[in-house]
Computed example of a mutant assay.
Amino acid sequence: MTPMQRIKVSPEMLAYVGPGILDKVDRPATDAIMFRYDLGDDPPTFAYVPTLCKADGATVILIVSAEACRRIFGSLPAAPGCWYLPADLALLAIAIRDCALAEPARATLRLAKCIELLCATFANIDGAALVPAAGSGALTERDAAGLAAARRLVDERWQEKLTLDGIARACGLNRAKLTRGFRQTFGSTVADAITDRRLQGAHRLLLATDLPVSSIGYRCGYSNNASFTRAFSRRFGMAPTRLRAIEAAA
């Protein structure tokens, strides 16, 4: 197997992109730590390793100065760990691995995406919404994997008509385990997570497009404009038309 591709992101950070092996680990600083992202796992995982080690099979590996992480993010993860890979991190790892641009644009984009991946990783860890890959507490490893799959389904298919029973079936959980485990793991009900994704999507469309408000509501999973306006106003403190008017006048 060929070696992983090496990317010098900065004097304090290196990245390696697979597939391949990492048998010689470069160290950008004496206090370097490692994050590895494994899309080949089923389901995909990522891990924090406070000491450098040989690795193979990973899609992306980030090696960064611990002091730089403390300076930028305020702290390091509390302990080593391995978690199921959330959708936002998976998409960034895929973008780094599969970048089809010609050089030197490819190297530039990969460098930027590696920085974005590190920032998103700390945001996920700080948010305490990750599912440990080895299971957690009363959750079996299978149940933890099912909850991770449910979270990805909500993150990726929020525009569809999602139901508790449909999500539970798709993720190999019964309804009770899904509702109880989702709240325990992510601090939110399934319905609230779906609503939050839909309203965040609507917020982006309102500011980035000139689509009619009713069309945006429908695209984001609302069957009528009245229910969309009520939900949006509760979430953001103003009606969608008001938000658009304020942004247009700014």
Rank of each mutant, 00 (worst) to 15 (best):
R157M: 01
L147A: 08
E156M: 04
P132K: 13
L147V: 06
L130G: 12
R152Q: 07
G137R: 10
D126A: 11
A128P: 00
R152G: 03
E141Q: 14
V154W: 01
S136T: 10
F122Y: 15
T140Q: 04
I125T: 07
L130P: 13
A138Q: 14
V131W: 04
D126I: 00
G146H: 07
R151K: 12
E156N: 03
G146R: 04
A128Q: 13
A149T: 02
T140P: 08
A148W: 04
I125C: 04
L139M: 15
V154K: 00
E156R: 04
A123N: 14
K161F: 00
L147M: 08
N124T: 07
R152C: 09
D143R: 11
G146N: 04
A133E: 07
A129I: 12
K161C: 01
E160A: 03
R157V: 00
V131Q: 11
A144T: 11
R157F: 00
F122N: 05
G127L: 03
D155T: 02
A148S: 11
S136P: 02
R151M: 08
N124F: 08
D155W: 01
L153T: 02
A129M: 10
D155A: 11
G127P: 03
I125D: 07
A134C: 05
L153C: 02
D155I: 01
L153D: 01
G127Q: 05
A123K: 14
G135T: 06
A148P: 02
A138Y: 12
N124P: 02
A148K: 03
R157Y: 01
L147C: 06
N124K: 10
A134Y: 03
R151V: 01
A148G: 14
A129F: 09
W158A: 06
E156G: 00
A148C: 03
W158K: 01
G137K: 09
I125P: 05
G137C: 10
P132Y: 11
A150F: 08
W158M: 01
A138S: 15
G135L: 07
D155E: 11
P132M: 13
D143N: 09
R151H: 10
A123T: 13
